[in-house]
């Protein structure tokens, strides 16, 4: 199932959706665990995470920032891949590679970076 493969990221999406609707999120142990656990996958520092876990408002804001990294990264890599395929098919390999380099110039999430690096390597 997609939810299982997405793992903690799916949990973050669901909680952020709820937090956006209700205005806040319950700062309980499961949430602390989720934010601490998934922080590294979203290039959040320990300091950032712990600061956010001091208050419910901080946790809500941290949760939202983490979700935004997932969402923006998804949009960024998807757009870049689509353009890359088009350029590659047109024979513009340099242009195709540049799409992935442009992602790597700004993306901080390791998983998305690995995708871009892999596609860049495959273009060689």
């Amino acid at each position: 199932m997609v939810e299982d493969l997405e793992g903690d990221w799916h949990q973050l999406r669901m909680l952020d959706n709820r937090a956006q609707q209700e205005g806040t999120v319950a700062l309980d142990e499961p949430l602390r665990g989720l934010l601490r656990r998934s922080g590294p996958s979203l290039a959040m520092t320990t300091a950032e995470i712990e600061a956010g876990l001091r208050t419910p408002e901080g946790a809500t804001a941290l949760l939202h920032r983490m979700r935004q990294r997932i969402t923006e990264g998804s949009r960024r890599i998807g757009d870049a891949l689509h353009r890359m395929y088009r350029l590659r098919d047109e024979g513009d390999l340099d242009g195709a590679r540049q799409q992935m380099r442009d992602v790597l110039a700004v993306e901080v999430v390791p998983y998305y970076r690995e995708l871009a690096e892999g596609q860049l390597a495959d273009l060689d």
Binding site: V2, E3, E6, S74, Q119
Partner: peptide
Amino acid sequence: YCEGQHEWPFRACSPDRRK
């Protein structure tokens, strides 16, 4: 999933390596 979350789940569906 994308329809529900309005974003593509790249951990579940993504390009594979050719090499």
